[in-house]
C-alpha cells in the first residue's frame, strides 16, 4: 500500500501525518511538488497542512498551480482517495476539486486551539465509525469557509458537508463556530466520497497522549478502504 503525503515549500504537517500513518503500519512517502508522475503509483494522497509557498496570492493558491496539483483531477477521477488537511483543504478548493474557498477568519486572528466537530455526511467510507463528537485542534488564519448562496445550497443538497463545528454537546451553534465559516462548515467531502477536505487536524488528534485520538479513525478508514 502506498500513501503519498505532499511536501510543498512551507508545508509543515507532513511528519505528523506520516507518524499517524506509521502507527497504523503504513509507510507514508513524501511527494514533492514536481513529482506528479509518482501519483500514478499511489493508492491515496494526503495533502498535509502548513503554509505552502508562504500562502502567497491566497492560501494554497500557488500550490494549486504546481505539477502535482495539475494531476489531482485525474487522481480524483480514478476514484483514489485524497485527504486535504488545513492548507490541503485550501489547495483542494483552489484547484476546484472541492467547491468554495477558505478566507480570513472573522476575528482576523490566527486561531490555534482545540475545538469540537461532528460528522454530517454519511456517504463517504472515510467518515464511518467516527465518534459522535470529535475533539480536534485547528490552527489557521484563513479557515472561514465561504461559497455563494447557490454553492452552499448545492453542498447541502449533495450531502457534501463532512464536518461542522459544534459545542461539546454536539450542538451546532454560532458560539462554537471558531472562524465564521458559513453553516459552521469545517470539512467537505465530494459526492463520490473519495475526496475529503477539512480545516481541523486529524493527525494531531491521533494519539491519546496528544489530548485526543478521535481523529485517528479517519486514517484507519482510509487504510481499510484501500485494502478492500
Amino acid at each position: 500500500m502506498r500513501i503519498g503525503v505532499t511536501k510543498f515549500p512551507g508545508t509543515n504537517n507532513e511528519q505528523d501525518v506520516i507518524r499517524a500513518l506509521n502507527s497504523l503500519n503504513v509507510k507514508g512517502e513524501l511527494i514533492y511538488p514536481w513529482e506528479n508522475k509518482k501519483l500514478e503509483d499511489l493508492n491515496a494522497l494526503v495533502i498535509a497542512g502548513g503554509f505552502s509557498y508562504g500562502d502567497y496570492l491566497r492560501p494554497g493558491g500557488i500550490a494549486a498551480q504546481s505539477p502535482v496539483a495539475e494531476k489531482l483531477i485525474d487522481f480524483e477521477e480514478s476514484g483514489k482517495f485524497i485527504i486535504g488537511i488545513c492548507n490541503g483543504f485550501q489547495i483542494l478548493c483552489e484547484t476546484k476539486i472541492l467547491p468554495g474557498v477558505l478566507t480570513t477568519n472573522l476575528s482576523t486572528k490566527f486561531i490555534c486551539k482545540w475545538i469540537n466537530i461532528k460528522t454530517e455526511s454519511t456517504h463517504s467510507p472515510l467518515l464511518q465509525n467516527l465518534a459522535p463528537i470529535i475533539r480536534i485542534p485547528i490552527a489557521h488564519y484563513e479557515g472561514r469557509y465561504y461559497d455563494d448562496s447557490n454553492g452552499i445550497k448545492k453542498i447541502i443538497s449533495d450531502d457534501s458537508v463532512a464536518f461542522c463545528y459544534c459545542d461539546e454537546y454536539g450542538e451546532i451553534t454560532q458560539e462554537s463556530n471558531p472562524n465564521g465559516s458559513l453553516e459552521n462548515i469545517a470539512g467537505l467531502v465530494n459526492a463520490k466520497g473519495n475526496i475529503l477536505g477539512m480545516m481541523p487536524h486529524p493527525e494531531r488528534a491521533s494519539f491519546s497522549y496528544l489530548g485526543s485520538n478521535l481523529g485517528r479513525q479517519i486514517f484507519v478508514n482510509l487504510i481499510e478502504e484501500i485494502k478492500c
Binding site: L57, E94, V101, Y146, D147, D148
Partner: peptide
C-alpha cells in the same frame, strides 16, 4: 484563473 479567486 490564478491571481484572483472569482468566487470572492
Amino acid at each position: 484563473k490564478i491571481l484572483s479567486n472569482p468566487l470572492i
